[in-house]
Amino acid sequence: MKIGIPRALLYYRYGIFWETFFQKLGHETVLSPRTNKDILTKGEQLSIDENCLSTKLFFGHVAALEGKCDYCFVPRIANLGDAGRFCSRFEALPDMCSNMFRDTGLKILRANIDPEQNIPAKRAYLKLAMQLGASREQAQAAYEAGMAAQMEDFRKKIKLNRALLKKEGIKVLVVSHPYNLYDEYIGAPIIKSIRNLDAVPICSDGVDPREARSKSTEIARYVPWVVSRELLGAIQMYRNQIDGIVLITAFPCGPDSMVNEMIIRRISHVPILNLLLDSQDGNAGIDTRLESFIDIIRFRKEVEQ
């Protein structure tokens, strides 16, 4: 069977697990293309206006899989138990997609992960695998292979950041949800611009998530959201090794609107640039802000020397 995976939202956290898991079960996986203008436009047309830019892109990516797969995988991932909750929009994704695409013939493959309701990820994935016709042993093996690939990917990202931190030059921690950081229309142009300004961008997801969540309490004792905790933890872990922080938010992200405000107020010794992105075309405003931000860091360093 061909299983479509939208290259958006939690793909950037669990994508490697998903692909390995389904392939191990003997299915083919089809990934939607990198975000382009067609995907953005389609996503905006499909979505209600109140959704954030990243969620709008998600629907665009689902639409890009129409006719390219037997099932499109849209899990409901509500929380990670004690590690925190995900944005409530993620809980609604399968229902929103079913409704949005009901006349198109696109079939949605669901999974329900909700440790707070006593459905941990492992149980949900084993159930999904067996629904797809696998035996318990096959399901177990696919799950473990997926987890191993996922851990390997985390290790790679951490190793990359360690190497980047040793580089010469201005180091900027780019803090954002991974689905923003790596999206062609949101984070990728920003990371490219930082490089073009001769600075070293360091991505906030290159940390051990467990360690990051525990470190986050040193900045804020209780934040409800998993990813926000990890972003705070990344700041706490890297704050003395970097020259500046760029926060990227996709308008109108609820968790970011609270957490980023707090970061700006509580992290005072590092210059912070807060970039709010909507679907506007053209990067002039962003380039102006990035260029001046890096200039300011350079001036500051010259004074310090």
């Binding site: 308008f251 210059p271 807060n274 970039l275 709010l276 909507d278 102006t288 802000r289 001046s292 931000f293 200039d295 300011i296 001036f299 500051r300 010259e302 004074v303």
Partner: peptide, 14 residues
């Protein structure tokens, strides 16, 4: 500004 050099800034968002 500190000692005649810009060290921090902020600009309006959207």
């Amino acid at each position: 500004v500190e000692d005649g050099v810009a060290v921090d800034y902020a600009m309006n968002t959207l």
